[in-house]
């Protein structure tokens, strides 16, 4: 493993860690975006573990903090947040290109990171693929049936409900949470179609932690119709996992999945290089 820390960006306001494989070839590198406000190591160090796994397989990586998150400062530019995100990811691509020579990039984003990966992938031609974890999706009739029907038929749920009525349970206090601002489904679908038209490979991963809006792999088709059939789209539902992959076994399964997907879509042709 070879990792190096950088301060970079137009205003030298960004901080990140580049990880390089033993042999570097011009190919595809992965950029890991912040998951909500969690700094670049990711929830429970997910991004560190993923970056190192990919480095060992031959892919260069950059995990970094976007403007005003983690160790990164403000750029001082008058940009809207979406514009700033795009500028930051472009700075990140430039750094990884300088350090590894790769000219195409796969973005990895969880929750708000998925949203940022989506918006960047839509406009930047250098993005060759993306992982969207608990990203866009919306409730459907099928989701509601799958969610409510088992509860209606479950004796234990009814028992709990009656018990709660007798002994009121304090509601869990509202906490700041990772939330993805919903973009109208029609726009999301059109933008995804455009990305696929450009040849991007897209992997949608949903966890059981967002069952409130996505609860079955089939729901992707309910949300995005024929896009589900596109050969460059893959969809997974990690039902057991929570939103931030707090259990190490769940993280390992996620890492295995990402490594396998990368190997399929951006295969390493020899040690340290990807096609």
């Amino acid at each position: 493993m070879h990792e190096q820390a950088f301060r970079f960006g137009a205003a030298r306001h960004l901080v990140g860690v580049v990880g390089l494989p033993p042999v570097i070839e011009h190919g595809v590198g992965m950029i890991l975006l912040n998951a909500g406000m969690v700094y670049r190591v990711g929830p429970f160090r997910l991004h560190v573990e993923l970056a190192r796994r990919l480095n060992s397989l031959g892919y260069p990586t950059l995990r970094f903090d976007q403007s005003t998150i983690g160790d990164s400062g403000a750029s001082g530019q008058r940009l809207s947040r979406p514009e700033q995100v795009l500028a930051d990811v472009r700075d990140a691509m430039e750094l990884l290109k300088q350090q590894s020579g790769c000219t195409r990039f796969v973005l990895f984003g969880l929750c708000s990171g998925a949203q940022n990966a989506h918006s960047t992938a839509y406009v930047d031609q250098r993005v060759a693929g993306a992982f969207f974890l608990d990203g866009y999706g919306h409730r459907t009739l099928g989701q509601r049936v799958r969610h409510y029907l088992p509860r209606l038929l479950s004796l234990s749920v009814w028992r709990q409900r009656f018990a709660r009525r007798r002994t009121p349970v304090a509601a869990r206090p509202a906490e700041p949470a990772f939330e993805v601002e919903p973009l109208p489904p029609k726009i999301v679908r059109a933008q995804l179609a455009e990305m696929l038209h450009r040849g991007l490979k897209l992997d949608f991963i949903y966890s059981g932690g967002v069952a409130r809006y996505f609860n079955h792999v089939r729901q992707f088709r309910e949300c995005f119709g024929r896009l589900a059939d596109h050969p460059c789209v893959s969809v997974s539902y990690f039902k057991e996992a929570d939103h931030t992959y707090v259990l190490s076994g769940d993280r390992q399964r996620l890492l295995d999945h990402v490594a396998q997907w990368m190997g399929h879509h951006f295969p390493i042709t020899r040690t340290g290089s990807s096609a």
Binding site: F44, G209, A211, D242, V246, S248
Partner: peptide, 21 residues
């Protein structure tokens, strides 16, 4: 169950403290 859809077995958490091996 605010975090997981279903409770996890002991085996999944036996060598861990919150978030880490």
């Amino acid at each position: 169950l605010n975090r997981f859809e279903v409770a996890r077995p002991d085996l999944d958490v036996s060598t861990q403290w919150p978030g880490f091996e």
